[in-house]
Computed example of a mutant assay.
Amino acid sequence: MMTNLFSILDPSTNIFNLPLNWLSTLLGLMFIPLMFWFIPNRFTLLWNIILNKLHIEFKILLNQDKMKGYTFLFITLFYLVLFNNFLGLFPHIFTSTSHMIMTLTLSLPMWLSFMLYGWINNYQHMFTHLIPQGTPSILMPFMVLIETISNIIRPGTLAIRLTANMIAGHLLMNLLGSTGTKISNYLMIILIITQFLLLTLELAVSIIQSYVIAILSTLYSSEIN
């Protein structure tokens, strides 16, 4: 059993002596197939509209002549992060995207595959990308160093950005919720309204961060063309 509110952020806690917390990552697979068993409804229409919008936006950023079908990779990444962020808003459901082991597992293989593909197939473009156009000769070694460091830390920044944004709101809501038994009835009303507003904010953050990690991954991959 979970001993406190913060245990929902701890992957080592057990439920009925079974370490089932990480199975929350697979809960989205239980909801996605359901829409294909019913006649198209408003939910499936909304789902298709979002998919088409993302496909058009990612297609603009990518060179589809050389990278056909890559948009579906980033759309899948968007939906995977979105489902895990959204499920983390429910009580006592483990938020897998609030841990570096999950976010770094998503960002590091993608970044590494982009780098290997770019350096193997288009190394001249990768070398020229290290020096922005119009850079003075005296600053070229520094620009190469800066660009190299910025490329190396990209998977870490993607992982930390998603983790920090997801865990910050959850901790704030848990801290405020833990004070509910120690305040008066009048302050309880204010606390409930504040918690509702924070929950709405966290819902928006979960959608925004899913879009951010997908669009940044798309931008990083477009640089190898």
Rank of each mutant, 00 (worst) to 15 (best):
M1I: 09
I8K: 06
P19Y: 08
L20F: 13
T25R: 07
L29E: 11
M35W: 09
F36V: 06
I39M: 05
P40H: 01
N41Y: 01
W47A: 06
W47T: 03
N48V: 03
L51N: 14
L54S: 00
L54I: 00
H55N: 13
I56V: 10
D65P: 01
D65Q: 15
M67N: 13
L77F: 13
L80P: 02
L82H: 02
N84D: 13
F86K: 02
F94D: 11
L104H: 08
L106R: 07
L108F: 15
L112F: 11
M115S: 14
H125R: 13
H129W: 06
L130N: 01
I131E: 04
S137W: 05
S137D: 12
I138G: 00
I153V: 14
T157K: 14
L158R: 14
T163Y: 05
T163S: 15
T163D: 09
I167M: 09
I167S: 10
N174S: 07
L176K: 03
S178L: 07
T181E: 11
K182N: 14
I190Q: 11
I192V: 15
I192R: 05
L197N: 07
L197H: 01
T200V: 14
T200C: 12
V205E: 11
I207S: 00
S210I: 03
I213M: 14
A214G: 08
S217Y: 04
N225A: 12
N225Q: 13
